[in-house]
């Protein structure tokens, strides 16, 4: 066969093959996100992994989420919370996980002097934001008055795995903290199975897992809670928080489940002292914590506290947080670097 020669430089060969390799691989880097989602915990829950081998663990993490949902939801008849609530003041034996979650939740009850209180179940039932509350009568003041004495975290007696409600009328509602606990368990599950890079998103409660493979930071956008209602609010984001490794970025806000009637906004963060939606000058609190369960407890507690007390608490404890007031003022604490965006 006839051969022919072309003049070619060695470096040119290297460049040509490098270019060919890069061009053919840029459409499929191997780090394309794979996201799995399920409707759980009364919201959309998703887990994102970045390699095909980790896909089964994303599904496994959501299975875990579903199991915890059944354990902690008030509506789940076989769950631990239902068993405690229906025990009529008798002792109930619960799983290790339920006991651990209760212990943490009660700690936040004590820390906040009852501003965060998991015994708010009777009040939560009156304010059922998943029903068509906007179209029907609001809970009556007398019903709330009657339910308030059952709200007191000190009514929960926890001894190891044994739980008893000292007041049989008390009802637990772990909705304000269970999501964080579950997110932590999902993050541990992923790490234990060798997943080195993942994102957990439980209805806007974010947990980053591991380091990003590109060596950069995780970038979590903090949504502007006023974007929905303020005509002159042009930004959908307050800013972007950058975190490294496994961290929780959790938010509590008064706009996600709320409605306005006669000029008053009714939202789902209830004040255990009054039985009504918390009267607060904060519309959103986002905190960065090691554990998501702490993030949920702290952010909810701070919304109820209001800006002055919340800022004091967060600064004293060096907790990175972004607080958004109803007038649009943004306060940051704990040296957080929340870069403002122009979106």
């Amino acid at each position: 066969m006839k051969k022919f020669c072309i003049g070619i430089k060695k470096t040119t060969i290297v460049i040509l093959f490098s270019a060919a390799f890069l061009m053919s691989s840029c459409g499929d880097s191997g780090n394309e996100p794979i996201r799995k989602s399920e409707f759980l915990l009364d919201t959309l829950c998703s887990v994102t992994v970045f390699s095909k081998e980790d896909e089964k663990f994303a599904e496994g993490a959501l299975d875990l989420c579903a199991r915890y949902d059944a354990l902690f939801a008030r509506s789940s008849r076989d769950g631990d919370v239902s068993k405690i609530n229906e025990a009529g003041g008798r002792e109930t034996t619960v799983t290790d996980d339920t006991a651990a979650l209760l212990e943490t939740a009660l700690r936040y009850g004590a820390l906040s002097d009852g501003a965060f209180d998991i015994t708010i179940g009777r009040i939560s039932s009156l304010w059922d934001f998943s029903s068509d509350l906007e179209a029907r009568d609001l809970p009556s003041a007398s019903d709330i008055e009657a339910a308030l004495p059952s709200v007191n975290y000190r009514n929960v007696e926890l001894l190891g795995n044994r739980v008893r409600l000292k007041d049989p009328a008390t009802r637990l509602d772990l909705g304000g903290i269970a999501k964080g606990f579950i997110a932590d368990k999902m993050a541990s599950y992923l790490a234990e199975n060798g997943v080195s890079e993942a994102l957990i998103d439980l209805g806007g409660n974010i947990v980053t897992v591991g380091e990003k493979s590109d060596g950069g930071s995780w970038r979590v956008g903090v949504k502007n809670p006023l974007f929905a209602v303020s005509e002159d609010s042009t930004s959908s984001l307050i800013g972007v928080i950058e975190v490294e490794g496994t961290k929780s970025v959790g938010t509590s806000g008064v706009y996600e489940r709320s409605f306005v009637r006669d000029g008053t906004r009714y939202h789902h963060i209830l004040d255990p002292k009054t039985g009504f939606p918390a009267r607060t000058d904060l519309v959103g609190v986002t905190v960065v914590t090691e554990r998501s369960v702490d993030g949920e407890g702290i952010s909810t507690m701070c919304v109820i506290f209001g800006s002055a007390r919340a800022q004091e608490y967060l600064e004293q404890n060096g907790i990175p947080a972004v607080l958004v007031k109803e007038d649009g003022t943004v306060i940051t604490t704990g040296g957080i670097d929340c870069a403002m965006t122009e979106e």
Binding site: F129, S236, F259
Partner: peptide, 12 residues
Amino acid sequence: GKDCVHHAPIAL
């Protein structure tokens, strides 16, 4: 419930 109607607009 209409949480979806009360949800903030999305833009990103």
